[in-house]
């Protein structure tokens, strides 16, 4: 990971203006850096400000106070907003809200048409983007006949075609069934392996477990951050923040409380299975010797 962040959020505050004399504060003096190649998860309860924060990352919202810099470009600089958005792409919660064309490949091409890419290059980029999300077979289909997970993959392809450095997912899996979610997670994992910077806003703690770093938001502030294992070790604190831990962590902690040799600090399902095997083998060896 290089030391130069892609995105710098500097002392950002934001509020929704209700009427002339009333504001609802959403972000309060938030500072955050996103580094190249990083997989960052942002969690927090409904209304904690995490979605508002993610909308600042590519200038959909601009701060009331403070600055957001994308590769050094201030998102307030309206003249360079296209540059910002081509570097940081965003996928939203509802697949239907971000599909504009009647044929899959036209939808993927939509952003490219706006930045005047040559026909030749456009074809290459569409091929690349549809291939990356595993939807090449659907390129001539109308998107409204696709499942939610497939639509989200098309939305991601539309962003990949712009060749961004960073992909921001704002609860992109929350409307999908578990199979649709697995599809998206597989695509995100692959992109991350190939070097894409990922920022994901999610309520699914098992997704958070896959990230490199977790930022926890509460009342418009960052209140906790660290690796998933560090963050999920704070079960009580998370509960206070109206959050949860993956079932794997909860089960591991429950087993540990009755059986201290069992490692409580697990976050993945397969780790629980491996730990059962490890502890059992140790038991057998101990009783055999």
């Amino acid at each position: 990971m290089s030391n130069q962040p892609i995105i710098c959020v500097e002392n950002v505050s934001f509020a929704y203006q209700v009427n002339q004399d009333q504001q609802i504060p959403v972000l309060q003096n938030v500072s955050l850096e996103v580094y190249p190649g990083e997989y960052l998860a942002i969690i927090g309860h409904n209304g904690s400000g995490k979605s508002t924060l993610s909308k600042h990352l590519n200038g959909i919202l601009t701060p009331l106070e403070g600055n957001v810099l994308v590769n050094g470009i201030n998102t307030r600089d309206k003249g360079r907003i296209h540059e910002v958005r081509s570097r940081v792409g965003m996928v939203f919660q509802h697949p239907d809200n971000q599909i504009v064309a009647t044929i899959v490949e036209d939808d993927v091409a939509f952003g490219l048409e706006n930045i005047e890419v040559s026909a030749e290059e456009m074809k290459d980029r569409i091929d690349f983007a549809l291939d990356a999300v595993g939807m090449s077979a659907f390129r001539h289909r109308p998107p409204h006949h696709l499942s939610g997970g497939q639509k989200q993959r098309i939305a991601i392809a539309g962003i990949l075609a712009m060749k961004p450095q960073c992909l921001v997912l704002d609860e992109a899996t929350s409307m999908l069934d578990s199979y649709g979610r697995q599809d998206i997670l597989a695509v995100v994992r692959k992109l991350h392996r190939e070097g894409m910077t990922i920022v994901t806003v999610t309520h699914h703690m098992s997704e958070v477990a896959e990230a490199d770093r977790v930022v926890v938001m509460e009342a418009g502030k960052v209140v906790l951050q660290g690796t998933p294992r560090e963050v999920f070790a704070h079960q009580e604190k998370l509960k206070e923040l109206h959050l949860d831990v993956p079932d794997a962590s909860r089960i591991a902690a429950l087993v540990h409380s009755e059986y201290p040799a069992f490692n409580p600090n697990l976050i993945h399902n397969e780790e629980v299975v491996a730990e059962v095997t490890r502890v059992q083998i140790r038991e057998v060896e101990a009783s055999g010797s």
Partner: peptide, 26 residues
């Protein structure tokens, strides 16, 4: 766990019940 050859009751679907199943194995 069942695939790994442990005998478990898969009807124990709540996390607390799953923890009990693991304790039974251990």
């Amino acid at each position: 766990l069942r695939t790994e050859g442990y005998s478990i009751n898969p009807e124990s679907y709540l996390p607390e019940e799953a923890a009990c199943e693991i304790l039974k194995i251990l």
